[in-house]
Write a protein that binds this DNA or RNA. Structure first.
Ligand code: ZN
Ligand code: ZN
Ligand code: ZN
Ligand code: ZN
Lengths: 135, 135
DNA sequence: CTTGACTCTATAGTTACTATAGAGTTTAAA
DNA sequence: TTTAAACTCTATAGTAACTATAGAGTCAAG
């Protein structure tokens, strides 16, 4: 199949597939006479693997590691487990940050009401303050 | 004062200050004979304003809008309020996404235990599956 | 007068794509 | 058979908000 069909089958864009190739994540094994990339069924699986990883916010460099690991079936998979553990931690960390941000933004929002002028705006006044209180 | 002192006073890096100038967020009013940027006390306040905005994850384009607004003290501040409301929504949206991600990652993690080989790795097997279940 | 700390501009790199431009290829209809 | 549409190719630039150089110039102290 050509790149367009692979794109349709996987829900990736054509440019994204070419980008993954450049990044050594997915190779097309053959080219047509007119130099078009040709893929077989296994490419669908490989691309879905990448897509699944991306949906979990794994970086492409990590996806690359996983692909390489996948090629040594006898090795221990500790590194995979660690990578996921790491991600869970990072996600939780980011959630905490966002929670702090949300509280900050909410209290900032409460410092202004409707029908005020820029001069009177509590938000702008707070943003101008020497330093916002730390969460 | 020169750029290095401004950087120290505000906790921004020198390059960041120059970047903000290029992005029309903070101008140095004068230059020294040797072409060094010179700042007065008001620059400290302006830069802290930017820093406060950034700590709330406001985009530089939004900071620019706020700075412009700040220059029309008689106008209504509705746009400011709307901007903050918007941000609160976006933050809450992102928190929801991360919560879904966390659940996904956690259940994926549970599909593997210690002392398995790559071949047996539940995580890799799940990532290879045609499609991950949607949250 | 030299050393070191500072500053200047310009440029490239980061991440994971997306969006062109300009050219060539393939397929299908007219 | 011609021609048009649809597809593909490479190469390049853009995104956001910085960070990190390189190479040159400025300034203060010793
Ligand atoms: Zn990671
Ligand atoms: Zn207001
Ligand atoms: Zn925003
Ligand atoms: Zn495993």
């Amino acid at each position: 199949m050509k790149i367009g069909e692979l794109a349709k089958l996987t829900g990736c864009s054509v440019q994204t597939i070419r980008y993954y190739e450049k990044e050594k994540l997915l190779a097309s094994k053959r080219r047509s006479e007119g130099n078009f990339r040709l893929y077989d069924q296994s490419a669908v699986g490989q691309l879905m693997f990448i897509k699944n990883c991306r949906s979990l916010d794994l970086a492409l460099s990590e996806v690359r590691q996983l692909i390489e690991l996948n090629q040594s079936p006898g090795m221990h998979c500790d590194d995979v487990n660690k990578m996921i553990d790491n991600h869970i931690e990072q996600v939780e960390q980011r959630m905490k940050e966002l929670e702090g941000l949300r509280r900050h933004l909410t209290s900032l929002r409460d410092s202004c009401s409707t029908n005020r002028t820029v001069e009177e705006c509590g938000i702008l006044r707070n943003l101008s303050a020497k330093q916002l209180e730390n969460p």
